[in-house]
């Protein structure tokens, strides 16, 4: 028992690692604040284009989505980070992470939003158009609000995944939460900083998981 506490829940080590880990936590929050809106906006574009009537627009978009969904996000990140320099493009870590996340999450948000838009009956668009709204206005004021509400659990669930995914930025040495904790661990030879980081992830994400369970069970009932 003592050895467990000593190695995993060592308060002294946690205390000395706290500033580093908190700075990392700040970086994680910053990363989330950038990649979630960017990914969502990309997803909106993906959804609108892949729902278009023209095949010339639709098919390339479906190909784009399936192509980037086939890659594990870490693979995209590593390839951008390690591969692009060979083409003379050397992105800083934060930009590389943002680009990788954009390519990945825009596809997932896009698929969810497309399903949401498809769940709204044709009558809504027809009714809106019959009152003189343009297609775009009808989409933004009538269809999308309903679509988003219909797929809200999926959107929240995907956002949860995106937040967890920011931990892979540690692999390209972006000093976010996991990276900072891992630094502190390798300096102290003690796992307590990782536990501390896990605690911070839980603090941030456990409420979201609870919320999702509620939403899913309410929909199922």
């Amino acid at each position: 028992m003592d050895i467990l506490v000593e190695n995993f829940f060592n308060l002294a080590i946690m205390q000395s690692a706290l500033p580093t880990v908190l700075t990392g936590f700040g970086m994680t929050l910053l990363l989330v604040a950038v990649v979630v809106p960017v990914g969502f906006a990309g997803g909106l574009l993906v959804a609108l284009v892949s729902g278009a009537r023209s095949r010339l627009l639709r098919w390339p978009m479906i190909a784009y989505v399936d192509f980037f969904r086939a890659f594990p996000p870490l693979v995209l990140l590593i390839f951008i980070h390690a591969g692009l320099p060979f083409a003379g493009i050397d992105l800083p870590a934060f930009a590389a992470v943002t680009l990788a996340f954009f390519l990945n999450t825009s596809c997932y948000y896009g698929e969810i939003l497309r399903a949401g838009i498809e769940s709204i009956g044709k009558g809504q668009m027809e009714a809106a158009r019959s009152t003189g709204l343009t297609k775009l206005l009808a989409m933004t004021n009538v269809i999308l609000p309903q679509a988003v509400r219909n797929v809200l659990p999926d959107l929240i669930s995907n956002t949860l995944e995106v937040v967890k995914l920011t931990s892979i930025a540690s692999v390209v040495a972006l000093p976010e939460l996991l990276y900072s904790a891992e630094m502190a661990r390798s300096i102290s030879y003690n796992a307590s900083p990782i536990i501390l980081a896990a605690g911070l992830y839980l603090l941030l994400l456990w409420p979201v998981v609870r919320l999702l369970s509620r939403l899913e069970h309410r929909l199922a009932a």
Binding site: K164, L165, R185, N190, I195, Y201, W206
Partner: peptide, 17 residues
């Protein structure tokens, strides 16, 4: 709620101790 990479690092680098 936990990122899988956190668990992997915990299991791989911390459990040996």
């Amino acid at each position: 709620a936990l990122p899988p990479l956190v668990l992997i690092i915990l299991f791989y680098f911390a459990l040996p101790s």
